[in-house]
């Protein structure tokens, strides 16, 4: 069976959830091989093995981590050359998509981004034009390179042995021209990461700048907090939490839109959510067209009531 390369998305060895989902997809297609760039592999090894990685290629050179994107694409191209994989899978993050883009040119192969599903025969499903259409496509030349959105599949554990080996990539000077000279981690909110969360509660203009009820409701559900562009532009919530065309694109199991009217730019970032709930004062808000369940009412009374009841039910 052919190998399927999965580029591991991690923070110093902490494997991000999207990677475990990629390993699950890889197992449909062939034998999952993890590609681990950076230090901290020993912390990641157990997770990779648990989710079915049969092999892991470690690339530890600081040449890769000290420069933006280009060296990682170069290393992957060399690994593709050596392993002749059935496909290369990456997370649909900014880095993942840009690495995929450069790799596609290097190995003259087709690229599909933002897949929400990948079949065993590598036919992909994408959701386009703000979710108005579903597109099925496949790569017709070279080694398929596919980036997959987080939460597209449920990661399945397939515990086994993972054999790791060091891979030495040769990085050209040209690939090291954009140097990362500083990194400032985001402030931790204590809540799940927005792009990976199973539940997202997002607030918009209707909050009037008071995200208190939104955050309290999110916490009782163990959810991440998102914000509409209107709320971010007003300075009520950080841009890192923006959901929509120019923010994050999320597809959680449950998306709760609070005080968000549902402009096309916002829908583009959340329309693939499995279940959508809306709370809005305006019965005509377009968000209700998408909602599986909606409450027309004041978020400042509806949310606290729901929060209290859920907390009581939990005891």
């Amino acid at each position: 069976m052919s190998e399927v390369l999965v580029l591991v998305d991690h923070v110093d060895g902490a494997v991000r959830k999207a990677t475990t989902e990629l390993l699950t997809i890889a197992a449909r297609v062939g034998e999952p091989s993890a590609v681990y760039i950076g230090t901290g592999f020993q912390d990641a090894a157990a997770t990779l093995a648990r989710f079915g990685a049969v092999k892991a290629y470690r690339i530890e050179s600081p040449d890769l981590t000290a420069h933006l994107v280009a060296p990682s694409a170069e290393a992957l191209a060399q690994l593709v050359e050596r392993t002749q994989p059935a496909a290369v899978l990456l997370a649909s993050t900014a880095d993942g998509k840009e690495i995929a883009a450069r790799l596609a040119l290097k190995i003259d192969s087709g690229l599909i981004t933002d897949a929400v599903d990948v079949d065993a025969d590598l036919v992909t499903t994408q959701s386009v034009f703000a979710g108005a259409y579903s597109v099925r496509a496949r790569v017709s030349r070279g080694t398929p390179i596919i980036t997959v959105k987080a939460n597209s599949v449920t990661a399945q554990e397939r515990p086994g042995e993972c054999v790791d080996e060091q891979f030495t990539a040769v990085i050209s000077p040209g690939a090291m021209s954009a140097r990362i000279t500083g990194t400032r981690p985001r402030q931790k909110s204590g809540r799940p990461d927005l792009s990976e969360a199973a539940i997202v509660v997002a607030g918009g203009r209707g909050t009037n700048g008071d995200f208190g009820p939104v955050e309290a409701f999110a916490d009782t559900l163990g959810a991440a907090v998102g914000a509409s562009r209107a709320a971010v532009d007003a300075g009520w919530y950080p841009h890192a939490n923006q959901v929509g065309q120019t923010g994050k694109s999320v597809s959680p199991q449950l998306y709760v839109a609070v005080g968000i009217s549902g402009a096309i730019q916002h829908r583009a970032g959340m329309q693939t959510s499995k279940t959508i709930v809306a709370v809005n004062k305006d019965a005509d808000a377009p968000i209700f067209e998408l909602a599986d369940f909606g409450v027309v009412g004041d978020l400042f009374t509806v949310l606290p009531q729901a929060t209290t009841l859920i907390e009581q039910a939990r005891g």
């Binding site: 596609a104 003259d108 192969s109 087709g110 690229l111 599909i112 036919v123 959701s127 979710g131 108005a132 259409y133 579903s134 597109v135 099925r136 496509a137 496949r138 790569v139 017709s140 030349r141 070279g142 959508i276 709370v279 019965a283 209700f288 067209e289 998408l290 909602a291 599986d292 369940f293 909606g294 409450v295 027309v296 009412g297 004041d298 009374t301 509806v302 949310l303 606290p304 009531q305 729901a306 929060t307 209290t308 009841l309």
Partner: peptide, 28 residues
């Protein structure tokens, strides 16, 4: 192009969800 589109389907209109008006028990 190195990719081929096999099919394009308009997303089926989302099944009309249930929308309730808050008359004091919207949160419930």
């Amino acid at each position: 192009s190195a990719t081929v589109v096999e099919s394009i389907t308009p997303r089926p209109p989302r099944q009309a969800g249930q929308v309730v008006k808050d008359d004091g028990d919207g949160g419930r």
